[in-house]
């Protein structure tokens, strides 16, 4: 269940962005999870819900997970395809020299923030109640 560690890293990155922009809260997060990212979207979402409980700046945030299917391009014949069963081999010509077009990524794509441009009391201090425990 390394999704909790990965979510911890995501929350740290988002917290830094929230501070940098003096934002009050996060409205939405968009992450890209490749088919070959080794992350199960549902576990990532569960980890997010656990952090939302303890991080006030995430209290009303939505998490959008964009699943990215594995897509390969043959270096030999140029054919582009989505493989079955993680076979990194051209389905047209059989070559094993294939390039990953997409599907191995694990990215924080966008952070949508609510900011108040003309409030001098911002940026605010962000309270925190610790982090959820890691995988059992």
């Amino acid at each position: 269940m390394h999704e909790l560690s990965i979510m911890q890293a995501l929350v740290d990155a988002v917290e830094a962005i929230v501070r940098e922009h003096g934002a009050r809260r996060v409205v939405r997060l968009v992450v890209e999870v490749g088919e070959m990212s080794n992350v199960i979207p549902m576990y990532l979402r569960n980890a997010f819900l656990a952090f939302r409980e303890v991080k006030p700046f995430l209290a009303q945030a939505e998490l959008e997970i964009r699943f990215v299917p594995l897509q390969l391009r043959c270096e030999s014949c140029g054919f582009e395809f989505q493989p079955q069963g993680y076979r990194y081999r051209c389905v047209e010509c059989g070559a094993t020299q294939v390039r990953v077009v997409q599907g191995e990524e694990l990215l924080l794509r966008d952070v949508e923030l609510e900011v108040e441009s003309d409030d001098p009391s911002w940026p605010v201090e962000l309270p925190s109640h610790g982090a959820p425990r890691f995988c059992e």
Binding site: I6, A9, L10, A13, I17, H21, A23, R24, V27, V31, E105, L106, L107, L108, R109, D110, V111, E112, L113, E114, V115, E116, S117, D118
Partner: peptide, 13 residues
């Protein structure tokens, strides 16, 4: 006045 700002991050987790 609250506004919504979208920050494009594109960084690996």
């Amino acid at each position: 006045m609250a506004e919504i700002r979208t920050v494009r991050v594109m960084e690996s987790l």
